[in-house]
Amino acid sequence: MILGSTLIWLAFFLLLVGFSFSRMGPSFTRSKFSIPLILIGILLLFFNNFSIENPEKELLESLHGFAPWFFVCSLGCYLVLSGSPIYWKVQFPQLISGWIIILGSFYLYFEFNELPDNFLIGAIFTALGVILSLFLFILLVRFVENRIPLEDSAPELTEEEMNFVTKIISINIGVDEK
């Protein structure tokens, strides 16, 4: 595999790692690396000047046609989301500009993107492959989770803990502690 094609897969890998790092939860400390990794991935993908062989060449040509619509439409969706009514407040500049951008983005889609001949077949059967993979993943996670033995029930609260909890609840419901 030549350098240009290798860089395409490196970009793809960095994009996936970036999205994985942005996950909330116990791994949240890694989320600060998410956006830089995604940006490096995008730059590698679209500013790769090395010669590329097939099948990556075909992929990159499709991505070049698809990317203008994708980024513009995503920007429009973001603006609409930030302008939509939240607690009865509507941000009209974001909302209106977002909808204009979304509608305009479809011009980019039909102007630059070239749909493959059997695009519906591609969509349906790729979705089928993805669903099969997700089904396998759910089965595997279920299998692993079922193998973990149940933990013993938690011990009863100590006198000190009981007093502490009573105090917190009393303060929260506005009742004097007796």
Partner: peptide, 28 residues
């Protein structure tokens, strides 16, 4: 072509999930 798309979607989703599991690893 149908088989290539099914296997393509299957391999793409599995590889993405493997990368996701490895890079969002946490104690639980």
């Amino acid at each position: 072509e149908i088989l290539y798309y099914i296997f393509g979607g299957f391999i793409l989703a599995n590889l993405s999930l493997i990368i996701f599991q490895l890079f969002s690893l946490h104690p639980y």
